[in-house]
Amino acid sequence: MSTSSFVSPLDSGIDELWARRADITPADADARKAVVAAVDAIDAGEARVAFVAADGSVVVDERAKHAILLSFKVLPMGESNAGDFRYNDRMPLKTRFDGVRVVPGAIVRWGAHIAPGAVLMPSYTNIGGFVDSGSMVDTWATVGSCAQVGKNVHLSGGVGLGGVLEPPNAVPVIVEDDAFVGSRSMIIDGARVHRGAKLGAGSILTASTHVFDANTGEEYPRGEIPERAVAVGASRVKSFPGGDFAMPCMLVLRTLAEGQIHDKLALNDILREHGVAT
């Protein structure tokens, strides 16, 4: 599917509601019904905020984002609970977890899709988030609003994927299939981790982060870790009027062969060779 041919699976009535969003309140029953149906579809995985098209581009479904933003207009505040824990919010907690392992302490808001076969350790997934099959969201990891996580991804302990709801056409964080993100790493501001890439612990990746090849000095597109790359956080010296300072960047140590995508032992060896933890 090309970007230009994409048509949102959500009802086009969301567009009309978005155009008059300033006048919508929880008292508008018809608007609430339409928005709830749209967010239910996102929750079920029948629609999603963003995905990677066949041509490699990221397609953002603005109608899906509009539906999520409208939900904050049409839903009244309400109390809910999970065991002894009490909440007061416009957004209820997710209730559909078919085939998903959800460990006590994991929190998922309605409007996030968790595919069968995923594992949620005590963690947080916000509305619009998408976690595909075989992926693990490890302890204290956060999948921010609209962040997209592919198949067989491991988000290690304390990883933070930033959220994005506004502006509606902004690209969310994308972590593609078979990726590994090391502990306490932060991926924000629409940054992208391509298929099979591995990030060492403590990596910081934003849309403006410079990414360099350690062996050639080549610079990759900013804010993107290339496919099957093993990358770590680093710094480079940049001169300013006040002196020379180390500025953060990401460094690609090696690109794995196709057959090494799932070999975590090979990943550990590469990172440890350079004194980096996983």
Rank of each mutant, 00 (worst) to 15 (best):
V171A: 12
A141S: 04
N126C: 09
G56D: 07
A53Q: 06
A231F: 13
G242R: 07
V171P: 02
A106T: 05
L205G: 10
V211P: 08
V149M: 06
A41C: 04
E258C: 07
P172E: 02
N81G: 07
D84I: 10
D11K: 00
V7F: 06
I68C: 00
A67K: 05
V102M: 11
G217I: 09
V276C: 12
I204E: 11
R86I: 12
S2I: 06
V36C: 12
G150N: 10
L165E: 03
A27N: 13
S156V: 04
K65N: 08
S8V: 02
V159C: 09
S12Y: 00
S2G: 09
Q260L: 15
A47D: 02
S239R: 15
D23E: 13
N169L: 06
M250R: 02
K198I: 11
C249T: 07
V108S: 06
L253W: 13
P76G: 15
V149Q: 07
V237Q: 15
A266F: 13
P226E: 14
D23G: 00
P26N: 09
G13E: 06
P226T: 13
E176G: 14
L75S: 06
A67R: 03
V35R: 05
P104D: 04
G160A: 08
V102F: 10
E16Q: 09
A29C: 02
Q148T: 12
A19H: 06
I174F: 05
T209I: 02
T278M: 14
A47Q: 05
E219W: 11
V36A: 13
L69Y: 02
D23L: 05
F6S: 09
G129T: 04
W18E: 00
R254L: 13
P122M: 08
A19P: 01
G233S: 09
G202M: 07
W18N: 00
G158N: 03
I188Y: 04
G117L: 07
E218M: 12
W18T: 00
A67N: 01
L10K: 00
D213C: 12
